[in-house]
């Protein structure tokens, strides 16, 4: 696949997200079920994103690990895939599809503004632990997105009986907890890779530090939920949204603003 075809495929996927967003909102306003149409359209978008990632991978003979464009493209693919699977398994997550698709659209537009020129991977990136590290990271972010989107939806509709809040609240904490497990594995796999690549398992570089801080924040939130059981539920939802914001800042901001040795690895 040439770069022009790859960009056209990505443009089609982003345009598809805009269509899905409009469709989602319209169907919900009419009081109809949006998920069958939304999930079908998202599946088509996922095929387009898969084609763009695979085509780029084959053309450049390397995975999408290094540049901001690579990271955005691969995250569009993984976030869409994880959301579809998560919403299929946990139906309460389907209610937040408009927020998820809106976020994916923003990422898509951002990716179209970035240079698609590939940068060769350093030899130290050729390591199976890197694959596990990145996969766990993608799963973490992929699970955080529906958790935060659902929490945001609950916050926006707080006090109204638009949704079954109890079920959605449970879905928020389920996905955040699973994200925490994935995050923990990401830290371990990353440490093993770093030890293999640079002879140290931890160095407090910007990306490592902010990733650890994100992990600590989730741990803090999970403990706070147990400690303050009478705390208004909206506090917890706000914190979940904030943690997703921190995770996005960590994975899509810090690597490209710092000179960390594994710049842009996510």
């Amino acid at each position: 696949m040439s770069m022009a075809v790859e960009r056209t495929t990505l443009v089609a996927a982003v345009a598809g997200m805009a269509v899905v967003l409009v469709l989602d909102v319209l169907l919900r306003r009419q009081g109809r079920q949006a998920w069958p149409a939304v999930s079908g359209a998202l599946s088509i978008i996922l095929i387009l994103l898969t084609a763009a990632v695979a085509g780029r991978w084959l053309r450049e003979s390397q995975g999408p690990f290094l540049t901001l464009y690579d990271v955005l493209l691969s995250n569009l693919f993984s976030l869409t895939l994880v959301y579809l699977v998560a919403a299929w398994l946990v139906p309460a997550l389907r209610n937040s599809s408009a927020i998820v698709v809106g976020f994916l659209g923003v990422l898509g537009i951002w990716s179209l503004t970035e240079s698609a020129v590939a940068v060769p991977l350093p030899a130290t990136f050729d390591n199976p632990w890197l694959w596990l590290h990145v996969t766990a990271g993608k799963l973490f972010l992929g699970l955080c997105l529906p958790a935060a989107a659902t929490a945001l939806l609950l916050l926006v509709h707080s006090g109204r009986t638009l949704f079954d809040g109890g079920e959605m609240d449970a879905a928020v904490w389920l996905t955040l907890s699973l994200a925490f497990v994935c995050h923990s594995f990401m830290l371990i796999a990353g440490a093993i890779w770093a030890h293999s690549a640079w002879g140290r398992y931890w160095a407090w570089d910007s990306l490592e530090t902010w990733t650890f801080i994100t992990w600590l924040c989730i741990a803090l939130l999970l403990h706070a939920r147990v400690t303050f059981r009478r705390m208004p539920v909206s506090y917890g939802w706000s914190a979940v949204v904030a943690i997703f914001g921190l995770a996005i800042l960590t994975f899509l901001g810090v690597p490209f603003l710092s000179v960390a040795p594994h710049k842009g690895v996510m």
Partner: peptide, 8 residues
């Protein structure tokens, strides 16, 4: 999962 209105 039973939506009150417009939910899934």
């Amino acid at each position: 999962v039973v939506p009150a209105r417009g939910g899934e």
